[in-house]
């Protein structure tokens, strides 16, 4: 997604860990639904092989940037860079990255616009993941 709109985000530091984790959870449903997609189903849109880095998305504490690696049309790896220099954000990033990786690898295509019942949704770095996905789509 092209970042053509000034985005605002005011996440209190105390809430950031929850927010980032929930964002990772949202990534799972954002990128597909394992319950309604038969295993091995072809992705709705074929991804090009290669490594794609999403545009940086900005949290209050710094940039978040997602990189995906695609092989044989499927995402095989996900990496995210998170704010550094803040002991809170550094501590929470480890589990957040793991969740993001698992969530993204578990389900591959962007199917949903919104999710009900998930308290924190649509956080910034989902946009970075989305823009990486967009780049991988020929």
């Amino acid at each position: 997604m092209k970042k053509q709109f000034k985005q605002t985000l005011y996440v209190a530091l105390s809430a950031l860990s929850v927010a980032v984790l929930a964002g990772a959870q949202h990534a799972a449903v954002q990128t597909g639904d394992p319950l309604t997609k038969p295993e091995g189903a072809a992705p709705a849109e074929e991804l090009a092989d290669g490594t794609f880095t999403g545009e940086a998305a900005y949290l209050a504490t710094g940039p978040v940037q997602v990189t995906i690696e695609v092989a044989d049309g499927r995402i095989v790896d996900v990496q995210a860079t998170y704010p550094t220099g803040n002991r809170h954000s550094h501590a929470l990033n480890t589990s957040a990255v793991i969740e993001l990786r698992e969530a993204t690898l578990a389900s591959q295509d962007a199917e949903l616009d919104l999710v009900t019942g998930a308290t924190f949704t649509s956080l910034r770095y989902i946009d970075s993941l989305q823009s990486a996905l967009d780049q991988a789509r020929p």
Binding site: Q25, V29, P34, T36, E111, L112, D113, V115, T116, A118
Partner: peptide
């Protein structure tokens, strides 16, 4: 139409349906 997922209360990483 907006495609809306319904979070699985037992596993927020999944959806029950849309």
């Amino acid at each position: 139409p907006w495609r809306i997922g319904i979070a699985d209360p037992g596993d927020p990483a999944r959806t029950l349906g849309t």
